[in-house]
Design a protein around this nucleic acid. Structure first.
Lengths: 358, 358
DNA sequence: CGATTTCATGTAATCCATTACATTGCATTG
DNA sequence: CAATGCAATGTAATGGATTACATGAAATCG
């Protein structure tokens, strides 16, 4: 269109060479669309944002023009004006950690249902990285953050921080969190080992800086107490959630000559490491030593033997976290909540009654 | 606050109560900072963007005010004005796939070196999701995309798409890609099996829609040819890169009574599945059947036995992809390139000479 | 029929930072 | 000393969309 020789001349001959025959322009603006559709920018905007308040005919006409010219509204301009981005950032320490994948999926499901997009930020445990993403919220590039570490980034915003904590939790009562009852869940795992007949149960913990790890150890201790068994510090090793840490923990225990018929690990990767180290020492799982993990990552069912573990409701954790964040974004007034889900023990092949009579 | 009767009156009685004791304002703007520092907005902006063109004293003063009042420039406004976000989106089909983790890390390293932030988008193979993220570029919320699937999203932008393809590659010569020489790499793996003495080598491939999978099969075929061995279609099964697919593939081959002493799988997860299925059938790896994977994911060294596999230079793939994208963003004129890296075979415990004489 | 709504649309202010251009003061030069 | 250049800063235009308010026409009411 508009290629005809007799071009209507426009009233204001501004400096821009925006009119000639061909349409070389790339990035369209409302103005251009408005001009092409012979309506005002307001009408174009309305036709796109709230079609119901525009007359049937103009609306169709505008949509037709938008389509023909290929117009995508500039989100920066819109977000600047509306002060909303409909974007949230999910911060995770390590995308290589398969535990988070399912959580993310839960987050995304709910986000999409509510018209939000999710962007992932990997922090690698670095405070600097974490802060960099948090600053994106301060700079209005995102509406909120779901963080999966036990830290809450500082965002210079008045009142409620648009932050929800998932999987972990912080003491700060102002921050909403979703996580599982780690004490109870760890307890169930250890209860199970006790029930099988184990009397010497080692524990490979996570970093003590993480509240959930403290809780898992707490659950372990309480279960021992329930079984009238003493807690023995020399059967406890702290790791850092890595496979290697699991290996080292077992090696350490064995090197120290500790005797145990079962090991409860604070996550699956350390459990996998533990199984490996045991195998390397010629100990069979579960015949000689039973192993229990925590999380139920995808690989847990593919180890040999398949790993008995505490399954966290990963999807639910993600969904719930996102729901809470949306709630908070819609109304800063909602009171913060700590939501606690429950986790179930999944029994697979890495556990059995102790065979070595002792 | 400020309820005391004797309020000092300020010299310039502007409308804003920006000076009294308490500072209740939350979200600061340049204007406020300018007012507080007694300079113009331009000077504030300059002090922050290009400090060198502002006099020493004003600069320090402004920085002091910025700090005291806690000002973070609104990135939306800035990006709107400058038409740059310094943000790129990395699209990956599946964050649960550990292969991508390292690639991402490479991307992030280079990105941060150049002042870019990376946001991850998980597409789950869905075109709709992929398009949604691509639209963020069209809507100016991000500068470019690194996609790790063999598809290039449509972005209504003139000329060069700000897109780089990593790990995979598309035929479109206009799109820069970084990937490994899959034909050669697969060839090396199969050559190695041949060298060990294997004559019956099965192949578990990936989805034929993916060019790199076609290449891996091609590499397998060429290696067979080099060894004067015939390609046998009935020793080939197509999977979908999942552990389950690997299991099913082996079950299928065994059910069909195929005899083979080695299996080459197009990725590690299928190789893990294959090992599992073999073990389930009572076949020992590597004594009865050797298994080779592709990718060298982190778990590959923790399987029992540890998996022999083709290690992709994951970090380098990421770094290179990001470098190319930055290059492209800085100068749309640079010609597109297909950059091919090489991959090395890592020999671990899942391969051995065939023992069953045949 | 004049007055009052209601509907559809237009005009212009607004969001906030960047930056081209203008201005001021001072130092340098012939 | 006038002329020139430079450094530092200010003024105002700009980016693109949203939306409060204004306007005009049609519909409804008394």
């Amino acid at each position: 269109m508009s290629g005809d020789g007799s071009r209507r001349k426009r009233p204001s001959a501004k400096g821009k060479p925006s009119t000639p025959a061909a349409q070389p322009a790339r990035v369209r603006t409302v103005k251009e669309i408005a001009a092409a559709a012979n309506v005002s920018v307001a009408t174009v905007s309305r036709a796109l944002q709230r079609p119901e308040i525009v007359s049937e005919t103009t609306r169709q006409h505008i949509h037709e023009v938008v389509k023909r010219l290929g117009y995508t509204p500039n989100a920066l301009a819109r977000n600047l004006r509306t002060a909303r981005t409909r974007l949230i950032i999910a911060l995770l320490p390590d995308i290589a950690n398969p535990f988070f994948s399912e959580v993310i999926r839960g987050i995304e499901q709910v986000a999409h249902e509510s018209g939000y997009s999710v962007l992932l930020g990997e922090t690698q445990g670095s405070l600097v990285r974490e802060q960099a993403y948090a600053d994106m919220v301060a700079a209005r590039q995102a509406d909120g953050i779901i963080t999966m570490s036990p830290r809450v980034p500082a965002i210079p915003v008045q009142g409620r921080l648009p932050v929800v904590n998932a999987c972990e939790y912080v003491k700060d009562a102002q921050i909403s969190s979703v996580y599982v009852d780690n004490i109870a869940a760890a307890g169930v795992a250890v209860d199970y080992l006790v029930m099988l007949g184990h009397r010497d149960i080692a524990f490979v913990g996570g970093p003590p800086s993480s509240p959930i790890c403290v809780d898992r150890e707490q659950g372990y201790r309480l279960a021992l107490k329930r079984a009238d068994m003493a807690f023995r510090a020399n059967l406890t090793v702290a790791g850092d959630f890595s496979i290697e840490a699991g290996e080292r923990a077992i090696e350490l225990l064995l090197a120290q000559g500790r005797s145990f018929s079962a090991v409860f690990c604070a996550n699956d990767e350390m459990a996998i490491g533990a199984m490996r180290a045991l195998a390397a020492r010629g100990l069979r799982v579960p015949e000689d030593v039973s192993v229990v993990g925590f999380d139920d990552i995808r690989f847990a069912r593919y180890t040999t033997p398949a790993l008995t573990t505490v399954a966290q409701p990963k999807n639910a954790l993600g969904r719930e976290a996102m729901s809470m964040l949306i709630e908070l974004l819609n109304d800063v007034g909602v009171p913060p909540r700590k939501r606690v889900l429950s986790a179930d023990l999944v029994v697979r092949g890495s556990t059995a009654p102790p065979s070595r009579t002792r």
